[in-house]
Design a protein around this nucleic acid. Structure first.
Length: 498
DNA sequence: CCCACAAGTCGTATGATTGG
DNA sequence: CCAATCATACGACTTGTGGG
């Protein structure tokens, strides 16, 4: 096989690697250097030839040019200059009828199809949008694109490999660079969104359109195994850590004794009516390293932490503690982050069919304010509580109204206390322990987020995506972990409304 | 451990149908 | 004629399995 040309060659007896190479260059009139690979049936992949190897009849060989870029002029063998030209040459089974031999040459066995794969043509409306980058594609248009790609690819395979999905997307991005350029997202993230999108398309299409095909049939699960109902095993996806554990060195001026005296002094100062706040902060800084060790390494309970460091249960100290870990002010981060995204988040959540009452109310309230800065605050509040809805998680797992009797067993929760008509205060609780109380939602929210990092808590499964969104888009803490796909898609949606 | 996938299911964009 | 309502198709999501 060479480019789109497949040719059969006849062999007598066994051939060596060198003989095959000579034959290949004759058949395809190759001038440049190339190497041969053969199809290994047991591994189902192309591999290099061994010297003196004996090949069974009906073996497929692929020609790979070693010098790239011979593809100029009218040649459409090799659509992209950087591509290697794959080529096949086969020897037919001498004693088999040609009809069966023809299946050998069918494109289905072309495992390198993706190298010379041509993108299907899209309608001019779609191409326009892709080239200019705006307005964003409608769902129907994206569907049409996916459908076209599916139809173009299924000629070769119904089950593209990971690499093949990636190559298709790379080609797509090459032709339509605007598609890859999304604000607030790396090209890699956009690429993985498209890869997942293609995988969903193939998965759904196989199930819905092509489920009768033998290739698809052969992958059917044998049995749903009925005794599954016996097992309750609600083993959900595990919770996730938020930030890499931060374990700083103890300050050089400190030793066990001085730390102990700091702790004692802090505890005494906490009971005073007029504590010396700046000294408290100093002592908290001095004991920071020891406190991190205690929380991260020894995993002590929140109650024990409170006994040793009662000051950690104070709004200002929480903010400062976060700053010691993350080196920026969490209130600033939240303010800046939501100043950037609030409007877009609110527009995005408005497109949802249904929202929790609190979110609806918050959105409605925005219009009530005439003053611009009050209005902005209201928008930020609405945006914060809209995030769980956007990523399909429940708001009440984060913010619960206290008079409702349902108890929530989450590590951290904000509770809303309602007085006469008005919300009177917000309380942040860790494991049932009150951390702080605040009259202002945004302060409570800052404490809420900081708490995960300060007490080294996992993100509960029920709020994994919400907290990931806050972490990456608002706090801008990037760990090495791949971004959750739902979170990425929500970012994409929000971008469209920015 | 990670990834692809099947199976089952949900939410909603979109187009057809209905009623005023 | 247009809107409200309905039906359907399709992308997305979850859970569990199997294979590397």
């Amino acid at each position: 096989m060479y480019g789109n040309e497949n040719k059969k060659i006849e062999r007598e007896g066994s051939n060596t690697k060198e003989q095959l190479e000579v034959k290949a260059s004759e058949v395809f009139q190759l001038k440049e250097k190339f190497k041969l690979q053969c199809w290994d049936r047991s591994f189902e992949e192309w591999r290099d030839l061994e010297p003196q190897e004996a090949f069974p009849t009906n073996t497929k060989f692929l020609i790979i040019l070693l010098s790239a870029s011979q593809c100029t002029s009218s040649s459409n063998r090799c659509p992209l200059a950087s591509d290697v030209s794959p080529s096949l040459l086969t020897d037919p089974p001498p004693n088999l009828p040609t009809s069966s031999a023809s299946t050998i040459f069918s494109t289905r066995t072309d495992s390198n199809w993706d190298l010379h794969f041509q993108l299907p043509e899209f309608s001019s409306a779609i191409v326009d949008k892709l080239q200019t980058g705006s307005p964003p594609l409608k769902e129907a248009e994206r569907s049409a694109m996916l459908e076209a790609i599916y139809n173009a690819v299924k000629v070769y395979t119904y089950y593209p490999k990971t690499m093949q999905y990636e190559r298709i997307i790379q080609k797509l991005f090459k032709v339509y660079p605007k598609l890859a350029n999304q604000p607030n997202m790396s090209t890699g993230d956009v690429q993985s969104i498209w890869k997942i999108r293609l995988q969903y398309k193939f998965s759904n299409a196989r199930k819905r359109e092509d489920s009768s095909l033998p290739v698809v049939q052969s992958r059917k699960r044998v049995r749903p195994s009925l005794h599954l109902s016996q097992v309750p095993a609600a083993r959900k996806t595990p919770p996730q850590w938020g930030m890499i554990n931060y374990l700083p060195q103890r300050q050089e001026s400190e030793d066990d004794k001085s730390i102990e005296s700091h702790i004692q002094w802090l505890r005494r100062e906490n009971t005073k009516k007029k504590p010396h706040y700046s000294r408290v902060t100093e002592a908290m800084s001095a004991t920071f390293s020891d406190r991190r060790q205690l929380i991260v390494k020894e995993g002590v309970s929140v109650k024990q932490v409170q006994e040793l460091y009662p000051w950690l249960f104070d709004e200002d100290e929480i903010i400062l503690e976060f700053q010691r870990i993350g080196s920026s002010s969490i209130t600033d981060l939240i303010r800046d982050g939501f100043t950037k995204y609030a409007d877009a988040i609110v527009t995005t959540v408005k497109n949802k069919k249904s929202r929790p009452n609190l979110v609806d109310k918050a959105i409605g309230d925005i219009l009530k304010y005439k003053d611009e800065s009050t209005r902005h605050e209201a928008t930020k509040y609405a945006a914060v509580i809209a995030v769980p809805t956007l990523v399909n998680e429940k708001l009440e797992n984060m913010l619960s109204v206290v008079d409702e009797t349902h108890e929530v067993k989450l590590p951290v929760i904000m509770e809303m206390f309602e007085g006469e008509e008005e919300v009177s205060s917000y309380t942040v609780k860790v494991d049932g322990f009150k951390v702080t109380e605040s009259s202002n939602f945004m302060s409570a929210f800052a404490v809420y987020l900081a708490t995960f990092y300060i007490f080294n808590l996992v993100y509960p499964t029920a709020l994994k995506k919400t907290l990931n969104f806050y972490q990456r888009m608002i706090l801008n803490i990037q760990d090495g972990l791949p971004v959750d796909k739902t979170v990425m898609r929500v970012v994409e949606k929000i971008n469209m409304n920015m």
